[in-house]
């Protein structure tokens, strides 16, 4: 089947989509957007997190056909042309990226949380990122990165 959707603000069309295919597969294999990662395909790790009509979801659990006509934002949509999004810069500055496999999902989830809640408590951050697993960092640097992004946001830097 054919699926039409908007990805990172651009209308996209995917052809020959299998009816049981996930949105994650469409993004990675049909639309050339490999930013969203595939680690578990069962909702456990969050590395495939994208925004569907603004809401963070595991794209591995959205059927491609369910995304018809809807708006998807992936990690590729966070940066403004050449300039990194504040959350991306904060991850780099805080050393929150090691192998990087979990990073796209965490960035999308953290970015959405900061939009909703510009000055989150540590508990808020932990809760918002509780669906994203990282096997490298031990999470402390990730916490630092999100705190840093929140602080920079409030300072208006």
């Amino acid at each position: 089947m054919r699926v039409n959707l908007t990805v990172n603000g651009r209308p996209q069309e995917a052809d020959d989509v299998w009816e049981g295919e996930s949105l994650l597969y469409v993004l990675r294999e049909r639309l050339g957007l490999p930013g969203s990662k595939n680690a578990c395909e069962q909702g456990e790790c969050g590395s495939c997190t994208v925004r569907l009509d603004g809401v963070p979801v595991c794209s591995c659990l959205v059927a491609a056909g369910q995304a018809e006509g809807r708006e998807v934002v992936t990690v590729e949509g966070l940066a403004d042309d050449e300039e990194l999004a504040p959350i991306q810069q904060a991850f780099i500055d805080a050393g929150a990226v090691q192998c990087g496999f979990c990073t796209p999902g965490l960035l999308v989830a953290a970015d959405e949380m900061l939009e909703r809640n510009p000055s989150p408590s540590d508990a808020d951050i932990r809760e918002a990122l509780s669906g994203n697993l990282c096997r490298c960092t031990g999470y402390e640097k990730i916490m630092d990165a999100v705190r840093l992004a929140a602080a920079r946001r409030t300072e208006g830097v």
Binding site: G43, G46, P56, V62, A128, G131
Partner: peptide, 9 residues
């Protein structure tokens, strides 16, 4: 239930 992503769906 699960995580924010799962609870959103």
């Amino acid at each position: 239930v699960a995580s924010p992503q799962i609870r959103n769906r």
